[in-house]
């Protein structure tokens, strides 16, 4: 399974035509204690870099953007009652949504894991 990142610090893991989306460890650390996660509704059609949901910490509120276009298949409802999981496991247990990928060509607009880590060094 390959993992790709956006400049806004979302990740997507691609398995076949399904993309699993979350925010990066770096983003979770920057936000601090996460207190709220707004998830999309199942069936919502999102576009690449369009708003997928939002996340709030004690310090800040920010939108979550979808790394790829597609239709939302599943959401991680456990985050609604336990948003602190984002701080504990942003790039694994705290996945936010799964989408049916509309167009794999869009992957070229994303960074690989290695490129993302290089990108973080420039911030």
């Amino acid at each position: 399974m390959s993992m790709y990142f956006t400049k806004e610090h979302e990740w997507v893991k691609v398995a076949g035509n399904v993309g699993t989306i979350g925010i990066s460890d770096h983003a979770a650390h920057e936000l601090g204690d996460i207190t709220f996660v707004e998830l999309p509704k199942i069936g919502t059609v999102v576009t690449q870099f369009g708003v997928l949901g939002s996340i709030e910490s004690v310090k800040a509120a920010s939108d979550i953007y979808s790394p790829l276009s597609g239709k939302v298949l599943k959401v991680n409802e456990s985050l609604e009652t336990a948003p602190e999981v984002v701080n504990e496991s942003a790039e694994d247990a705290a996945w936010m949504a799964q989408i049916e990928i509309a167009d794999e060509v869009e992957l070229k607009n994303l960074m690989t894991q290695e490129q993302y880590y290089d990108y973080l060094k420039t911030l």
């Binding site: 601090g32 204690d33 207190t35 004690v58 310090k59 602190e84 701080n87």
Partner: peptide, 20 residues
Amino acid sequence: ALMAPFGGWDMPIQYEGIIA
């Protein structure tokens, strides 16, 4: 500590985390 300006001073905002 995470430091930030507050009232003209360089102040600690958090150490281990605000909620903790």
